[in-house]
Each structure stands twice: as C-alpha cells, then as structure tokens.
C-alpha cells in the first residue's frame, strides 16, 4: 500500500516535470545559440580580434574606430535613406492598394495573389530579376530606346548617387504586397455599422477614410512599421544580388559592412562592434512592441 502511494506520488511529480523537460531542449538551444552567442559577440567587440577571436579586452576602441570609418558612415547613411523610403513607400502602396481592393472589386481573388507573390521569392531571385531589368544595356532603358523613346535614360543602378534607390525599388516590389495584405485584413475587421452611421451623418468618402477608417487601422500601421523596420536593418541578400554593395561602396548597408569587415578584411573586432549596433537598433524597435504584445496576451 505504501509502495503504491509513493508510486503515484512519483507519477504526479513526473507529470509536473515532463512539460519543463519537453521545453528544455528548445530553451537550451536558445540560451546557447542566441543569447550566449550575443554575449560572445558583445565580448568580441571589446577585444582586438582580427582573423580569429582573441580574448584581450581593449575597451571601446573598436567602437571608436567604427564611428571613425567613412565606410561605416556610408553604410549607416544608406540604411537611413533605404529604411525611411522603404517603410514609407511600402506603407503608402500597401494602404492604397488595400483601400482600393476593398471597394467590392471584381477579380479581387486574381489581383491579391499577384500583389503578394513576390513575398514567396528569395531576395536573391528578386535581386537577380531587378539587376537585369534595371541594367541600361539590356533592360528598361534599352527597351524604351527600341520602342522609339531615344532620350529615355535610366542608369541608376550604375550611378553611385542613385544606386541605393534601386535597392528601394526592388525591396518595395518584394514586400509592398504583404503590407497590402496586412492593411486589408485590418480593413475587413472594421465594423460596417460605424461606417454606415457616418455616411448617414453626411460624411464624404474622403473624410470617412481620413477621420474614421485610417485611425482605426492603427494596429496594422504599427505591425507594418515594426516588420518593415526590422527587415530593413537585416537587409543583406538583396544588396548582394542587386548591386554587390557597389558601384564602389555606394550601396553598402550595415549588414554587408559587418560581413566584409569580419570575414574578408579580417577586422573581427570592428565587425562584432557593428553587429552589436545592429542588434541594438533592432532591439529598440522590437522590445516595446513584443513587450506590449506579451502583456496583452497574458
């Protein structure tokens, strides 16, 4: 009898532990490969590591060097230009398309997937497609010339000052459909009774959207901003495929800077410092958002 009781006791104990045991592999992987690695990289950013990790602390030298490098300033400036245009244009196109699609459009079922399919492609494929599409020799410029518009010129991709904007074009092409889907979902969630009431009160379509609908889409705006901002900071593949960071260094972003300084120029300490700054940027964007999400769900 006593044995029986302790057996049952053991079983309830086990039942209590199993969930934690099941969760533990993921948690262990996460602690080592995410947070452990983050700490390791932060540590490296304070060392004189070059080709291989070294463990001597040298204080903030790498950060001081980093902010003294013109290549890093180029990368940061490019990111500022790219991110603001990318976020703004994607949001504008996404919102416009969502509102227009929301007007009982015939063929919506056809149009929606067309707007959205680029999201299924990799940035490498997108970059390859746009690289040749924007190439003056065989792409758009050539086509316009062949169609008789001789003065047409579009050589941004080969132009140091304009190349960063070609990255914006390709990135907008890839993600604006996704933003459209987010806004559309938001629009479809709005109660029509509210709109009807406003219309009876004599509100015009324009003010209906400006005063009522768009303010109600606030959560969708927030999600779109967070997603787009974090995609912008992480942008790497698209630059590699579209311009390779060129012409010259004209389209380097922090992500490409980090990679080349760490792995091809053997400046691991500086590369680690740049990665830490990227992480801090993302954390500043994501933390408040995730915190609010989690708190709400509790």
């Amino acid at each position: 009898m006593a044995r029986h009781a302790s057996d049952a006791d053991f079983r309830t104990k086990l039942q209590e532990w199993i969930p934690k045991l099941v969760l533990s592999p993921s948690i262990a992987l996460m602690l080592v490969f995410v947070y452990g690695f983050i700490l390791f990289t932060i540590y490296l950013s304070f060392t004189s590591s070059r080709m291989l990790p070294k463990y001597d602390l040298i204080g903030f030298d790498n950060y001081a060097r980093l902010w003294g490098l013109s290549a890093w300033w180029t990368a940061v400036t490019n990111l500022a230009i790219f991110a603001s245009l990318y976020i703004f244009i994607c949001t504008a196109i996404g919102l416009t398309l969502a509102i227009l699609l929301d007007q009982k459009i015939r063929g919506e079922g056809m149009l929606r997937p067309i707007y959205l399919y680029p999201m299924a492609l990799s940035f490498i494929v997108t970059g390859t497609a746009w690289k040749w599409f924007l190439d003056p020799g065989i792409g758009l410029e050539n086509t316009m010339h062949l169609w008789g518009w001789d003065s047409f010129s579009f050589g941004w991709i080969k132009d140091r000052n304009m190349a960063i904007y070609t990255i914006v074009i390709a990135a907008v092409w890839q993600t604006s459909g996704f933003v459209m889907a987010m806004f559309l979902a938001g629009l479809r969630g709005i109660d029509n009774e509210i709109l009807k009431a406003a219309q009876i009160d004599g509100a015009s379509n324009w003010s209906l959207y400006r005063r009522i609908v768009i303010p109600m889409l606030r959560p969708a705006f927030l999600s779109a901003f967070v997603i787009l901002a974090h995609l912008a900071v992480k942008s790497y593949d698209l630059v590699i495929a579209l311009t390779g960071g060129g012409p010259g260094r004209a389209t380097e972003l922090p992500a490409t800077f980090m990679y080349s300084y760490t792995f091809t120029r053997n400046q691991m300490g500086t590369g680690a410092a740049s990665a830490v700054i990227m992480l801090m940027t993302i954390a500043a964007i994501m933390m408040p958002y995730l915190y609010a999400e989690l708190k709400e769900k509790k």
Partner: peptide, 19 residues
C-alpha cells in the same frame, strides 16, 4: 521564456555569425 524565444526570431543574424 516565450518572450526570449520570440525576440530570438527578430535578431539580426550578424550578431551570431562569428560564434
């Protein structure tokens, strides 16, 4: 724990490349 797991989806992977 879930919050930590969730944040790990969004880190820039440059931060883990070296280790």
């Amino acid at each position: 724990l879930f919050g930590l797991l969730l944040f790990s989806c969004f880190i820039p992977f440059q931060i883990v490349l070296i280790p």
